[in-house]
Nucleic acid binder design. Structure first.
Lengths: 199, 199
DNA sequence: GTCTATATTGAGATAGAC
DNA sequence: GTCTATCTCAATATAGAC
């Protein structure tokens, strides 16, 4: 009785290598440089074989996005559940590689429907987790919910981290060190306050 | 005595039309879709003529960036000098079209040296203006400079506006309305406080 | 300044042998 | 699953007539 074919180990490995290669091309040359040829060369396989694993280039982008997105969700879950949630959140949001990929995926998603939908799913999921957590957390940090609604705080943390990391990576030198220092101290003060408020 | 050739009126007009067309293509299809053909078609001229005005596609990008960047600098200058500087700044930073173009230019600039340098110039210039203004403004708003360094405030306003506008434009629905409302109220409270503090 | 024609390069994708 | 060979299309850019 013939069993349904299972992909061989080598197959999954090659798929992963293709995703890695795609991320590298995106980071080094931008999403527009992702072609079956460029990705294949970097993964050490033949160009037409890319289409065997990912029929279209869009499929490849979506696969990259899913893998990253799921990582991001897991990481944010852990951060929000950690002993110092705000600090962990800030660190997770400040990941340079994730931010650089986000720039590319964001730009690409603005003009590719399949990607746009997928980015939206992850963005909503992460934001919902953050706001849910903030609903009890804000008080612990001694912040007034009416003055600082969860949606505002979440957007601020995200936007601040994104801007600082992107400017730093590009070398725009817009006082990113000062801003990062200022945020680190603000986070430290808030964590301190929460600690001293806990029974 | 032969005078140095001056471009005819029609020439400058066509240049401007090409820049407009380029912005449109970037907004609708992304920076990667900017080609001599796509831009020429939208501007109603022949493709090879694009190369007469802008020898390379990079030159075209740089010209678009300069025009937008100079607009942005002027607008920020006016905002910071207005009667309600923080509100005007927030409104300028929340411009949807400017933000959408910034996404494209940022992504493109990460992999094109000529663009990267140019974006950096404008980013530094704007950030310096903001920080200079904040050095006296923060006190007027009743904010402690040590708690909220100018670089942090500037990065926060920028990042917040960018994130909210981008998510809203893409339709990611990450509670952007709530965040925007929260920020509007925060700005209103601060402007109110500044007014009541003024002699 | 504006056009037609074209050189050159590389893209996505598929056919079909192995 | 993996390869070679190839189709088709479109890109940047230039040459050269007008």
């Amino acid at each position: 009785m013939a069993e349904p074919r299972r992909p061989r180990a080598a197959t999954e490995l090659k798929r992963a290598r293709l995703l890695d290669a795609t991320e590298e091309v995106m980071l080094e040359e931008g999403y527009a440089a992702v072609t079956s040829r460029s990705v294949a060369a970097r993964a050490g396989i033949n160009a037409p074989l890319v289409h065997y694993y990912f029929p279209t280039i869009d499929d490849l982008f979506v696969a990259v996005l899913r893998r990253r997105g799921e990582q991001g969700v897991r990481r944010m879950e852990q951060a929000l559940a950690s002993p110092e949630p705000l600090r962990a959140w800030w660190e997770a949001a400040s990941d340079p590689r994730g931010t650089a990929l986000l720039v590319e995926l964001m730009a690409a998603a603005n003009h590719r429907e399949a990607l746009r939908a997928e980015v939206g799913e992850f963005a909503r999921q992460v934001r919902a987790m953050q706001m849910e957590r903030l609903s009890t957390l804000l008080e612990e940090y001694g912040l007034d919910v009416r003055e600082f609604p969860p949606a505002l705080i979440a957007a601020a943390v995200h936007g601040l981290a994104f801007g600082i990391v992107q400017d730093a990576a590009a070398g725009y030198d817009t006082a990113t060190d000062e801003a990062a220092d200022g945020m680190a101290r603000l986070v430290a003060r808030l964590e301190e306050r929460r600690r001293s408020r806990a029974t």
